[in-house]
């Protein structure tokens, strides 16, 4: 059971990364970004192509993957989000669902729908914690998270960061600081895509991955994490991610292994999501209703 909790924390950290991207977009644009998972999908497949297929160094793969994710984020912002800004939020949501499907289709078209194995950055057995074998990959994850958290804490104290946070309430606030709303919009989508890309690169080496793996397995837990954090809190989304990861793995342990219920992980996340939405819709850490 300890092993499941430890596993949950690491998996939850990746959910948290995606959730932070989701919250960032929601704060700035009041839309649910159903394409968030595929930023990670694009990053993972680009990195795989560069490292495994072309045999380039690992860091080239990482840089290429992240660049691809950010390029996708900016493209989505320009081609989908800005033209549809005046449409209803349902239409925007349908369009973003379309983006996710489109991306999966492109990945399949270019690279066939076969499972792939991404090698981890560092090989080795690592150490043992609570009965779970912690791989070096997961220690790297922790280091990356620490750096990211520090960077974001710093960023949101700068003028630019504050303008981003204020943009949902008041487009004029951004203009007062001298930044155009368009620039903010680009920045938000670029950052969300970068976070999604990092999540994808961290998650892909954990097991085999197939086209659409991020949307299929990560998106709903990530959204649940964002909701748990109240949809507007960046640290809340991250903490929520870890909580979801732990609940999911406890679900696998209790329901799946002990009671043999199929789909225990999904069931656990769904139940938690419903509980939060019905009992405490403002989230565990959210402030306003």
């Amino acid at each position: 059971m300890g092993a499941f909790i430890a596993l949950g924390v690491f998996q939850g950290a990746v959910y948290g990364l995606l959730a932070v991207g989701i919250v960032l977009v929601y704060k700035a644009k009041r839309v649910f970004n159903f394409a968030q998972g595929e930023f990670g999908g694009v990053a993972a497949f680009t990195a795989f192509s560069l490292v495994v297929s072309l045999g380039l160094p690992y860091w080239v793969g990482v840089a290429g993957g992240l660049a691809a994710a950010v390029a996708m984020g900016l493209t989505v912002e320009r081609v989908i989000v800005r033209p549809l800004e005046s449409e209803s939020r349902t239409i925007m949501l349908v369009a973003l669902v379309g983006v996710a499907l489109f991306t999966i289709a492109i990945i399949v078209l270019l690279g066939q729908p076969i499972p792939r194995v991404m090698p981890p950055l560092v090989q080795g057995t690592g150490l043992n914690l609570l009965g779970a074998g912690i791989l070096p990959q997961q220690l790297i994850l922790l280091a990356v998270l620490a750096v990211l958290a520090a960077a974001m804490a710093w960023f949101f104290k700068t003028d630019l960061g504050l303008a981003v946070l204020a943009s949902s309430q008041d487009t004029r606030a951004a203009q007062v600081v001298g930044i155009s709303p368009v620039a903010i919009s680009r920045l938000v989508w670029g950052m969300a895509a970068l976070l999604g890309g990092i999540a994808g690169l961290l998650y892909a080496p954990v097991g085999i991955f197939t086209p659409g793996f991020m949307t299929l397995t990560m998106l709903v837990p990530a959204f649940a994490a964002a909701v748990l954090g109240g949809m507007t809190s960046l640290p809340g989304a991250f903490v929520g991610g870890i909580a979801i990861g732990v609940v999911q793995n406890l679900g696998i342990y209790l329901l799946g292994q002990q009671l043999k219920v199929p789909g225990a992980a999904e069931l656990g996340v769904f139940a938690l999501l419903m509980l939060v939405l019905l009992i405490r819709p403002q989230g565990l850490l959210g402030k306003e209703a």
Partner: peptide
């Protein structure tokens, strides 16, 4: 009891959950 965007999320999560639980029963 939830509205708009949250409804989309709930139904998506329900669909995925049904897929892995009921359909594998």
């Amino acid at each position: 009891r939830v509205t708009g965007l949250y409804l989309a999320l709930v139904t998506l999560a329900f669909g995925l959950t049904a897929e892995t639980t009921i359909f594998n029963w």
